Computed example of a mutant assay.
Amino acid sequence: MQKVSLRKVKTPVSYLQENSEDVLHFSLQGLLPSGHTLALNIPLGTLSHLACKDDRPLMLMEQQFTTSEICVLMPLLDAYPYYCPYEVLVASFNSGHASEAAIARSRKRLQEAQEAGIWDQEMRPVRNVLSRTRLKTRSFGIEISSILETGYILMQTPRYKHPEL
């Protein structure tokens, strides 16, 4: 008989100390149909697509994310409908929460990397995690798009049809 493990994804302590909520909700107007929301369960590392039908909540879809993936997904969700700058993604990726001090450090580090010609090397770990995160968000009809020399933005996946209730 095989044991089933219900392990929790380890969440960066700094983020949990900053945020008292375990589940964050995002309506993402323009990306999701009216009345739909995404619920990010931080301790479990799950993102759920929720809607209501006949006054009852319905879970339409769910994906599991690693801690690193959550660290890049959170600032993108927070920034929507605007773009998320590179330095915010790097700060969140490195520390689990993009505080002003962490963002300033990341901005300086990226500027130095640009001047030294090693910007791609500096961004590679973040881009690798974004690539895995992008594959998972596509199932929700959400694309993570790059904006050249600026950052990333959430957009609707072309020709995606949201589940009907």
Score class of each variant (00 low, 15 high):
residue 98 A to L: 02
residue 103 I to C: 09
residue 63 Q to H: 05
residue 141 G to V: 00
residue 35 G to N: 10
residue 102 A to M: 02
residue 137 T to S: 07
residue 51 A to I: 09
residue 152 Y to K: 07
residue 69 E to L: 03
residue 51 A to R: 10
residue 161 K to P: 04
residue 1 M to D: 13
residue 7 R to Q: 14
residue 48 S to N: 07
residue 7 R to A: 14
residue 43 P to I: 07
residue 44 L to K: 13
residue 69 E to Q: 09
residue 60 L to V: 03
residue 133 T to N: 04
residue 145 S to E: 10
residue 8 K to R: 15
residue 90 V to F: 05
residue 152 Y to T: 01
residue 79 A to Y: 01
residue 40 L to Q: 07
residue 14 S to L: 12
residue 66 T to Q: 00
residue 10 K to N: 14
residue 111 Q to Y: 14
residue 165 L to Q: 07
residue 87 E to A: 09
residue 77 L to F: 04
residue 111 Q to S: 13
residue 92 S to P: 03
residue 25 H to C: 15
residue 43 P to R: 04
residue 147 I to G: 08
residue 163 P to F: 05
residue 22 D to C: 07
residue 111 Q to K: 07
residue 74 M to F: 11
residue 154 L to G: 00
residue 156 Q to K: 14
residue 79 A to F: 01
residue 10 K to Q: 15
residue 125 P to D: 08
residue 31 L to E: 01
residue 118 I to K: 10
residue 55 D to A: 08
residue 96 G to D: 04
residue 81 P to E: 07
residue 4 V to K: 15
residue 129 V to N: 01
residue 86 Y to V: 06
residue 154 L to D: 00
residue 73 L to K: 00
residue 138 R to G: 03
residue 62 E to C: 08
residue 103 I to A: 06
residue 22 D to P: 06
residue 124 R to I: 10
residue 13 V to I: 15
residue 15 Y to T: 05
residue 64 Q to D: 12
residue 100 E to Y: 12
residue 52 C to E: 14
residue 75 P to Y: 01
residue 161 K to A: 11
residue 128 N to G: 13
residue 76 L to W: 00
residue 32 L to D: 00
residue 50 L to Q: 07
residue 67 T to E: 09
residue 129 V to M: 05
residue 15 Y to W: 10
residue 12 P to R: 11
residue 160 Y to M: 02
residue 120 D to T: 13
residue 165 L to N: 09
residue 155 M to Q: 12
residue 9 V to N: 06
residue 30 G to L: 02
residue 6 L to I: 13
residue 165 L to E: 08
residue 144 I to G: 01
